[in-house]
Simulated assay, not measured.
Amino acid sequence: MSIRNQKDFAAGLIYVLAGAGFSLGALEYRLGDPARMGPGFFPFWVGVLLAIVGLLTLAGGVRRTAGVEGVKRLEIGPMAWILGGVVLFGLLLQPLGLVLALTVLVLVSSRASHEFTWRGALINAAALVAFSTAVFIHGINLQIPLWPVALG
């Protein structure tokens, strides 16, 4: 057995490890059954499904008919932009509110792409703000500020 598609093999391995981690972590909680689900039921089965998808992806990487593809070099810069955007969102949500924190998230994260344009990022931010406001503020009445505390 040889690994023909290293990219699929590595992705499958990550899925299997993540799924196993979720499933094993969920065993710390009561699972219950489908009629009376416990707090560990959903994460356990999501982990199992993720591990199954991982096994299928992993198997695709060792198939004889798989295209030969290597794993590319790790891009630290784009990962830092995306992670930085998420961290900023978490730090800015309470003081600035959902609208401004999401805008910062999208603008910072979009710098990770070589196709970055301010116009596209602002359009994406507006769409995400509209969707998130509709779902989280108006739909499920999540108690987070929409605007900075100083304004309201």
Rank of each mutant, 00 (worst) to 15 (best):
D33L: 01
W81I: 11
V135P: 08
M37N: 04
S113M: 03
V104Q: 07
L146N: 08
L55W: 09
V68M: 11
I76L: 14
F89C: 03
L105M: 11
A80F: 07
V87P: 01
S109N: 00
G85E: 03
W118N: 11
E75T: 10
L74T: 13
H138P: 10
H138W: 15
V129S: 00
G40S: 02
P43N: 06
M79K: 05
L93P: 12
A121V: 04
L98T: 08
G77C: 10
E69Y: 10
G40W: 01
Q143Y: 11
F42R: 09
G77T: 14
G38Q: 06
M37C: 01
V46M: 06
S132L: 03
T117K: 09
A127F: 10
A125R: 08
D33Q: 00
R63N: 12
E115T: 13
L74P: 05
P43L: 04
G90R: 09
R63Q: 15
P43K: 04
L122A: 05
G61P: 03
G61Y: 03
F89V: 03
G90W: 10
F89A: 05
G85W: 02
P145V: 08
G32D: 00
G61L: 02
V135C: 10
F136A: 08
K72R: 15
V62T: 13
P39E: 14
L128M: 14
L92E: 11
F136C: 04
G139F: 05
V129G: 00
W118M: 14
D33K: 01
L96C: 05
A130F: 10
L92H: 09
A121D: 04
A125H: 07
G61H: 04
I82L: 05
L105A: 05
G67A: 15
G84Y: 07
V135Y: 10
F116C: 02
L102M: 13
I52K: 05
G120A: 13
L96A: 14
L49Y: 00
L55H: 03
G60Y: 11
L49W: 01
F131G: 12
V87M: 02
L128W: 08
L50Q: 06
K72Q: 15
P39Q: 13
W118I: 15
V48Q: 00
S132T: 10
G38P: 01
S110I: 07
L128D: 09
G84E: 09
A112M: 06
V108H: 07
L107G: 02
F89S: 03
L100S: 13
G40E: 00
G97H: 03
M79F: 13
L142W: 10
N124T: 13
L88R: 04
T103L: 13
L107C: 04
L102S: 12
A134V: 06
G85H: 01
L98E: 07
R64E: 15
P78G: 09
A51F: 00
G70S: 14
